[in-house]
């Protein structure tokens, strides 16, 4: 039950112990909890199923992507396999990418940078990068990534010379895209674990290059 503004003021004025409106569930939250309770009540799913799914969602993180990128930087044969057959290569690393319909790796070079967006919703390579950040789902990013990618990158702190070609990928269908960022200079001799620390989530969406060493 929601309170209107006058109720809020009234509660504050009189010091009554009303629940704060912020703690009330919104319409869609109430609806989804009601559906969940019905599904459990009717024996379609169990509370354990839900918990397992939550654990699975939480276990997926950008660390998976960083591991793939770091190995690709360190091992050219692995990089070739990752680009040729990303899903099989994930399996080789113990990363479960089977829920992705098709998976494409976009390799950045000195001359070319890739940027990934889903203008229609929030398509994102979740098994590799976890849940998308809120900005990825924002109308601002979704509209501007396609028509002003350089402006978007600038806001993330990356200014690219005009000669560098920017390729924006709008992932609106069955394909999921992962950017393979350019290996930073000065990282020769670093271990895979050290390299992986430089690979940020944002660098695998393509809005910025990876971190520089130190």
């Amino acid at each position: 039950m929601s309170m209107d503004r006058s109720d809020v003021h009234h509660a504050a004025d009189t010091g009554e112990d009303h629940p704060h409106p912020k703690h009330e569930l919104g319409y869609y939250a109430k609806r989804i909890y009601a559906i969940r309770d019905l599904l459990i009540e009717k024996g379609v799913i169990t509370q354990d199923d839900i918990q397992r799914q939550i654990d699975y969602q939480e276990a997926r993180s950008p660390a998976n992507g960083a591991q793939l990128v770091a190995r690709a930087w360190a091992d050219p044969a692995f990089k070739k396999r990752l680009i040729d057959d990303p899903k099989a290569t994930c399996a080789e690393m113990g990363i479960d990418a089977t829920s992705i319909n098709e998976f494409v790796v976009l390799e950045n070079t000195e001359r070319v940078r890739h940027l990934v967006v889903c203008t229609l919703c929030s398509c994102y390579p979740r098994p590799i990068l976890g849940r998308p950040p809120d900005w990825y789902k924002s109308l601002n990013y979704r509209s501007r990534a396609v028509n002003d990618p350089r402006g978007v990158m600038r806001e993330f702190g990356q200014e690219l010379p005009d000669e560098v070609e920017i390729r924006v990928h709008d992932s609106t269908a069955d394909m999921r895209y992962l950017v393979l960022p350019l290996r930073p200079r000065g990282t020769e001799g670093m271990s895979e674990a050290e390299l992986a620390k430089l690979v940020t989530r944002d660098s695998m969406i393509g809005v910025v290059d990876p971190l520089a060493p130190q």
Binding site: N147, D162, E165, V168, H169, D170, T172
Partner: peptide, 16 residues
């Protein structure tokens, strides 16, 4: 796609 875009740019857009 946009008409108005960075002059001389080779930038591209890919859509499925």
């Amino acid at each position: 796609v946009w008409g108005q875009y960075l002059a001389g740019s080779q930038d591209k857009l890919f859509v499925d």
